[in-house]
Amino acid sequence: MSPALHPVVCLGGANVDRKLRVAAPVRPGSSNPVSARETWGGVARNVAENLARCGVPVQLLTAVGQDAAGRALLDDAARCGIDTSAAEVVADALTGSYTAVLNPDGSLHVALAHMDLCEQLTPDWLARHAGRCRSAALVVADLNLPAATLAALVAAAAQAEASPLVLVAVSEAKMVRLPAGLQGVRLLVLNRGELAAWAGTERLADGVARLRAAGVHDVVVTLGEAGLCHTTPAGELIHLAAPAVSPEALVDVTGAGDALAAGLCRGLWRGDVAAQGWSPTCVQALARAARTVQSAATVLPDGDADSDPISLPPIPS
């Protein structure tokens, strides 16, 4: 069977996203009028939905509470085409939540994450799903997983014949969960602040060099509206600009990073990266992220970003 016919397995967070958009600049210590919207979220879940909506077979390994939110979350994921048959349903626990307070222009003011259920995703839990991970075309894990589970996952990925492993950062605070040795990590996706938190330096090139010295094969550093940087096989950094999004078109930044990460994973799954290098895949991923910030949805309801109408910047030669 062709590797592209095997599923992508996503491990990590799945939760309720609550988006509160203030009507005027936030006044600390006071009540602020907001508009509110609830959607499904979680980095691993969002990546899985983006992939499923682009026609990629995907399995989600996560934990939800034995509550109405957990049942609804899994039902919705199944409707999107995600295989949730191996998701853990934990009794006497609340499904995780992520509450984003957005500024009037749609940019993020502050976010509050309640992801305690991910602590149930232990190395023993991972061992029960070792067969799924070994048979996957690609394994994608977010850093909501406990440190011990991430260490076990990275160790397994370093073995011969293991499925390629992609790690997606979730916050600066959780960068400490990365193991010291990162051999076996095919790709690490993180933003500039998360890189600085891990590497202890604001110098982008120095931080990426430290990741590669720790064993990471490829690194993509997202830079928000400035685009991203990706590594080359020689260890050089290539900068790609993001498609321009006018302030009037910006609706909600929530989910843009997950859309971009999914685009990168899709390029690996399809073999585009092996055939063409990272730049074409990164351009398509940036386009999907740009479309996401222009939508109220955390994940775009339509599918393939290849037909995106946004005018893309040229790829550096």
Rank of each mutant, 00 (worst) to 15 (best):
83 D>W: 08
42 G>C: 01
86 A>L: 11
64 V>L: 04
114 H>E: 15
79 R>D: 14
82 I>N: 04
56 V>H: 06
36 A>R: 14
35 S>G: 14
113 A>Y: 02
43 V>E: 08
55 G>M: 13
118 C>M: 13
68 A>E: 15
107 S>H: 13
37 R>T: 09
33 P>I: 09
72 A>C: 12
59 Q>N: 08
93 A>L: 00
99 T>R: 00
123 P>Y: 05
25 P>C: 14
42 G>F: 05
124 D>T: 07
82 I>D: 05
84 T>W: 03
92 D>C: 00
95 T>N: 03
92 D>A: 09
33 P>M: 07
57 P>D: 12
71 R>E: 15
115 M>L: 10
123 P>K: 02
26 V>N: 08
35 S>Y: 01
85 S>F: 12
24 A>M: 11
120 Q>F: 05
76 D>S: 14
80 C>D: 14
95 T>Y: 03
49 E>I: 12
70 G>A: 10
63 A>S: 10
47 V>N: 01
52 A>C: 12
59 Q>W: 03
99 T>S: 03
123 P>G: 02
67 D>N: 05
68 A>Q: 15
90 V>R: 14
115 M>F: 06
34 V>I: 13
23 A>P: 03
60 L>Y: 05
122 T>R: 10
123 P>A: 01
59 Q>E: 15
72 A>P: 05
108 L>C: 06
23 A>W: 09
86 A>Y: 02
32 N>G: 06
110 V>W: 05
65 G>N: 06
44 A>W: 08
54 C>F: 06
40 W>C: 02
84 T>I: 04
57 P>C: 07
104 P>G: 02
113 A>L: 08
94 L>H: 15
26 V>K: 08
39 T>E: 14
59 Q>F: 03
31 S>E: 11
120 Q>H: 11
